[in-house]
Design a protein around this nucleic acid. Structure first.
Lengths: 342, 342
DNA sequence: CTGTTAGCGCTTTCAT
DNA sequence: ATGAAAGCGCTAACAG
């Protein structure tokens, strides 16, 4: 169906290998022949077969990105960054969604050992307990870089943000705004980011000598409506919180829904801060302060690191663990627009 | 490095072809041998080489998605839908971003003729003037499905939404809310969706006998800050609009920025409606009514159609053109939550 | 400078 | 029921 080297060589009266070399601009081929070959290739719209080349060279110039979800500003911005670097370096990008399902993630990773990709960038799903499948992948010669949701073991290269620090600053921000009962909404309990953010929260309470009330920690799930009900119940209590710290964006949105359903006014009756990459959120809603992770940069760093590892195999002796800085965007800040990066 | 059929066959004392057949559950192989092979494959963690298989079978079980951008709720939801179907049917998904650059799009599409993919799903970039590269791709045997931003020629299968109708309904909604000078913000002038939405706008004005003022059509660009300045200038005029119809989400956000910078209060002084898939927008901002396209379904339809075309080659005689329905979500609607699909 | 040849790992006749 | 061999399209070592 499509035109290949054989066809080209026949058309030109040359051998297949000469054509191949000419196309790769080999020093073994005369300038004139190269020109002839190039022109014919152009004319017949020759495109080298990716699979044949991949098979022969044992290289796919393709990377895989495995993330829990994509309809989420953080992850789509990260992919944007990954794509940018990949395109720049001539790599293709395969995307896989685990949908927060560990089994799904595992089978995806297993398939990736079939030589389809030269490297993998992954953010763990909320309920993945083991990273054996990724150790196996790594061991089989496919480098792996984690971002954001990383394993705690420290055995892999990672790109993360300053989660403890942000947890601290967010809480401090609320305390300085006058809150005294700050609820901490969390989910995916065993992820390291969940822990770190919460530790920052606890540390800030300690610094300001606010007693920690375990009831103020709300363990949420992936069930949006369930979360909303949970929050409604809490917000109707007599000693309800006067501030909410949503450790992920989804929970901030759930809070909005809950408040709107029980007619609780924000920010008058309830202040809120959230991790969020919904860059418009703080603009649209005057009651939301946000912590914005540099998702795009995270993606770029991850891709850059991975491609380095792919191209210089000797890289694996040092395990890079890069930490980037997040931004705290305060509500009603006059520099909101500039900070939001718009 | 990795374990292949040769290794397996040596380990089992069988021939390569027997192992291959056993793994593919061929009737030619005895049950007992099959079992032995399976177990060994499991034990050694055998993964078939995707490139070898692809080369041999001339099939990649991979599709490409080419979109203008990904950090955008519409496109990321669409990808989500595409991924869902692809995964279900055992296809891999390569993603490419044109970043609204026609040249970029063109070179991407050209590369795709190298047998890397079995089919392509694409949404055109804002300044792509010709679809020759896609005709060539199609002609070379790779089926192509367009969604949302489709060519007008009607020669390709497409998945779109009822843009004219939505343009009409959005405008009518603003008129019924009391607006009399509705500005229409547009960009990417030559895309068919831009035209259709605007035609709906014009039709609604006509129906309600509002004279059309060409000054109310604001031609925007991809430059966010430029758009904001443009809008600020317009909104400071004496005969400024009392309503804004943003034909894409980005322009609604620019409007928010502009208003906030010149202290124009929404919705009191200016009402706004926008095409948007930012599902939280209408919740966070009481001044924004939105038209939500069923992005996820669009993605699913596109992938389903494409895979059908890939698998039954005879499908190409009829050109499917599917139109889906969008939702108008009115501000302060009590059914907001339900409609937003949360 | 150009051509011949041997695979990359897999599937698929065709023999046995 | 199993094996031998050809070949998908390409690259790279080796000859000429």
């Amino acid at each position: 169906m499509s035109v290949n080297l054989k066809k080209l060589s026949e058309e030109l009266g040359l051998s297949i290998s000469s054509v191949s070399k000419a196309l790769r601009d080999s020093y073994e081929i005369s300038a004139e022949t190269k020109k002839r070959v190039m022109e014919m290739a152009e004319k017949l719209n020759y495109q080298p077969n990716a699979f044949a080349r991949g098979l022969r060279k044992q290289k796919s110039i393709t990377i895989a990105v495995v993330i829990p979800e994509i309809a989420n500003n953080f992850f789509s911005l990260a992919i944007d960054g990954i794509q940018m670097i990949a395109q720049q370096k001539g790599y293709h990008v395969l995307t896989y969604l685990s949908h927060e399902d560990a089994q799904n993630e595992e089978s995806t990773v297993k398939h990736l050992q079939g030589g389809r990709v030269d490297g993998v960038i992954i953010s763990l799903c909320g309920d993945s307990s083991s990273v054996k499948h990724l150790q196996a992948l790594q061991a089989s010669g496919v480098p792996v870089v984690f971002f954001d949701r990383v394993p705690e073991s420290g055995e892999f290269p990672t790109i993360t943000t300053d989660d403890f620090d942000c947890g601290f600053r967010a809480t401090e921000h609320m305390l300085l705004a006058g809150c005294r009962r700050i609820a901490y909404l969390r989910m995916n309990g065993h992820l390291s980011i969940t822990q770190k953010r919460m530790n920052g929260y606890l540390e800030a309470l300690k610094k300001y000598r606010i007693p920690f009330d375990p009831k103020m920690v709300v363990e949420c799930t992936n069930d949006n409506n369930g979360n909303i009900e949970l929050l409604k119940r809490m917000l109707k209590l007599k000693n309800r919180p006067d501030g909410i710290f949503a450790s992920v964006e989804k929970l901030a949105i759930a809070t909005y829904h809950a408040c709107s359903e029980i007619n609780l006014k924000m920010p008058e009756q309830l202040k809120i801060i959230s991790f969020s990459n919904l860059r418009t959120a703080s603009l649209l809603s005057p009651s939301l302060s946000t912590i914005t992770q540099p998702a795009f940069e995270i993606g770029r760093e991850a891709a850059t690191l991975l491609i380095q590892m792919i191209e210089k195999k000797n890289f694996s002796n040092r395990i890079e663990q890069i930490v980037l800085k997040s931004n705290l965007i305060e509500r009603n800040s006059s520099r909101k627009r500039a900070k939001a990066g718009l």
